[in-house]
Amino acid sequence: MINKVQILSVTPPGNLDAYIRIANLWPMLSIEEEKILTKRLRYNSDLDAAKTLILSHLRFVIHISRNYSGYGLLQADLIQEGNVGLMKAVRRFNPEIGVRLVSFAVHWIKSEIHEYVLRNWRIVKVATTKSQRKLFFNLRKTKKRLGWFNEEEIQIVARELGVSSRDVREMESRMSAQDITFNPLPEEDFDGKVNTCSIQYLQDKKSNFASGVEQDNWEEHAANKLSNALLRLDERSRHIIYARWLDKTKKNTLQTIANNYGISAERVRQLEKNAMKKLKIAIEA
């Protein structure tokens, strides 16, 4: 396992040129030296061997990172992400497989840089599926050769990359789009540009504030009228209405109420019917 001290030792400092010069000073390992170090790490967990393996391969990370300079990201950040991939490769490398460490590490270095570019190139993710990721990193190279795509060129690219022509069109559109400020500062909102927008100018078509207020007022008004109407009923009728319709815990049956008052269920039904009529007249008044 590689500790934090060793991670910091391969992190580009503020002066990138100085970092690159120092990284290139580390000598490249011979096949025999690399084999000894990788075995010491794998079988003895030798951290000094891991450090030497990492530092001697930093030049390769720097070289690979330069291939991603066209995405507008800092090279120091690209190198740092690539170094993370290098450390993962060193940790997983098996010296018995018969290949050089750099050949194994290239995949891990590129993988970490790819993830970093996809996370940071745009606010909105431009590549989420496997085919979109493949297109994202290959379409830029292809466009340098073809320029703007016509239908024939789209078909060529689709065949070369093994994706659908629809995927090519969609990715070209995503990569051509530009991020814009969603909610610019006031001083930025008077530069004459038409590609800025503000949350203050957006309309929420799914909500109606006026209707919501009106509905709340109506419900409060109806509740007040019902309360006043209930007060006009006699105590027995008021209890019947409450037990039958307003008790949130349970709805009492006619027979249950009849047993409480010592009358028939039919008489309770008649009292309930009369009470409901009185309530309706009071509420509509």
Score class of each variant (00 low, 15 high):
residue 61 V to R: 03
residue 170 E to D: 13
residue 61 V to I: 02
residue 144 K to I: 12
residue 128 T to I: 14
residue 71 Y to E: 00
residue 64 I to R: 13
residue 96 E to P: 00
residue 127 A to K: 06
residue 66 R to F: 05
residue 96 E to V: 01
residue 95 P to N: 04
residue 120 N to S: 12
residue 147 G to C: 01
residue 88 K to R: 14
residue 86 L to F: 08
residue 162 G to R: 00
residue 95 P to T: 04
residue 151 E to C: 06
residue 48 D to E: 14
residue 132 Q to M: 06
residue 68 Y to S: 02
residue 52 T to Y: 08
residue 167 D to L: 07
residue 151 E to R: 09
residue 69 S to D: 13
residue 135 L to R: 02
residue 122 R to A: 11
residue 85 G to K: 01
residue 106 V to R: 14
residue 41 L to R: 05
residue 132 Q to C: 06
residue 133 R to Y: 06
residue 92 R to T: 07
residue 61 V to F: 02
residue 86 L to K: 04
residue 79 I to C: 06
residue 119 R to W: 06
residue 166 R to E: 13
residue 90 V to I: 12
residue 132 Q to Y: 09
residue 79 I to E: 05
residue 131 S to W: 08
residue 52 T to Q: 14
residue 121 W to E: 12
residue 118 L to I: 14
residue 125 K to C: 07
residue 165 S to E: 15
residue 151 E to P: 08
residue 58 L to N: 04
residue 48 D to V: 10
residue 108 W to F: 15
residue 109 I to D: 09
residue 162 G to V: 03
residue 98 G to H: 03
residue 112 E to R: 11
residue 130 K to I: 12
residue 162 G to A: 04
residue 63 H to E: 11
residue 50 A to W: 05
residue 91 R to K: 10
residue 53 L to Q: 03
residue 84 V to Q: 10
residue 43 Y to I: 03
residue 55 L to P: 05
residue 57 H to K: 10
residue 159 R to D: 11
residue 169 R to I: 15
residue 41 L to S: 01
residue 133 R to H: 13
residue 130 K to T: 14
residue 92 R to C: 07
residue 144 K to R: 13
residue 121 W to Y: 15
residue 87 M to V: 05
